[in-house]
Design a protein around this nucleic acid. Structure first.
Lengths: 177, 177
DNA sequence: AGAATGATTAGAAATGTATCGAATTACTCT
DNA sequence: AGAGTAATTCGATACATTTCTAATCATTCT
């Protein structure tokens, strides 16, 4: 990745693009390129050395001159390949989840029920962990468990149903799998 | 061209590459991306706005969130297409020629005959313009014309022949076409 | 209408980098 | 070996850009 970023940085400069365009047409050398672009040889050399270090160009001496030439294979791949990371980035969802939880829970208790659905689902999902799957609870049990997390167990209980995290029939509640 | 350079500059930033990689997997929104990358929403917004202005991403509102998505067609072209200028660059040779001439001619006279073949050819080619094509000159005429440019007309005359700019048979000289 | 929340903008600090002139190095040709 | 020439390096300067905090704006939901 570092490699690709470095290469993109190299390409993102007007002078270097100009140099590459010159080399795209034909090999050339420092003084001539400097003349073409109305810049000093020092500047052109600075850029060519950077390009060379990254493997974008090669150079070899011919008489007085250092002839620079383009490494053309580099440019065949679609741009897509140049921006994509190999690593699976990071488990974004999990990180976001922790962020939300740490915001709404203080000392293990739910400070406030989030307004937004997405955050509310995360918070309710966390509370749902206190219930065992495949087990049936009566309303008093449900209230008691929820109450460990939040004062208003009625609202939370209702939201658990609304979000589809728990189901209920008559007086019986259970976790939806 | 300006367009392409601008786009490459956009891609040449670690944070923006990270953002694009996130959007490559799925659409997302400012706060979530900020959380993923451990940066502030302000920073993410700054980058997304730049990307949007360049047409790299689009955004639309959904509930509380501005959902950003990738403009994927952009990335199909090979990198090659992204660095190549449409314009024929500039007549590099002509510019180089002028540079060399202004260096070796002062006030219309040749200060010194360049050592290097490439430059010498350019200088001699300039002097050759003083001769009419298809006309024959004797040596005295040739010397006189060359003398307008340079003291040592003998050397210059000999070099004109050596470079193949003029030809000679016995006492007669003419321009090679 | 008002409260809540995410998005955006403005301003400032810090960092990175392109460019140049001058001095030095590396090489070629006589 | 020495003169000449192109390439490179060094140090300094100027400019662009990323990032943050704080404040403001725009939208949604009650």
């Amino acid at each position: 990745m570092k490699q690709k970023l470095a290469l993109l940085k190299l390409l993102a400069d007007e002078t270097r693009l100009n140099i590459l365009n010159i080399l795209l047409r034909e090999d050339s050398y420092v003084e001539k390129i400097a003349c073409d672009l109305s810049l000093t040889p020092a500047t052109i050399c600075y850029h060519l050395k950077k390009l060379e270090a990254a493997g974008v160009v090669n150079c070899s001496r011919s008489q007085f001159y250092m002839i620079y030439s383009l490494n053309r294979e580099l440019f065949d791949k679609p741009l897509f390949e140049w921006i994509k990371k190999e690593e699976p980035v990071l488990d974004s969802e999990e990180k976001y989840r922790k962020e939300v939880l740490s915001h709404f829970f203080k000392y293990g208790r739910l400070v406030q029920l989030p307004t937004q659905r997405k955050k509310r689902e995360i918070v309710l999902g966390e509370i749902a962990k206190a219930f065992e799957p495949e087990r049936q609870y009566d309303e008093a049990e449900v209230n008691e468990i929820i109450h460990r997390f939040h004062e208003d167990h009625c609202t939370v209980r209702r939201e658990m149903i609304a979000c589809g995290i728990m189901a209920r029939e008559k007086e019986t509640y259970w976790l939806v799998t």
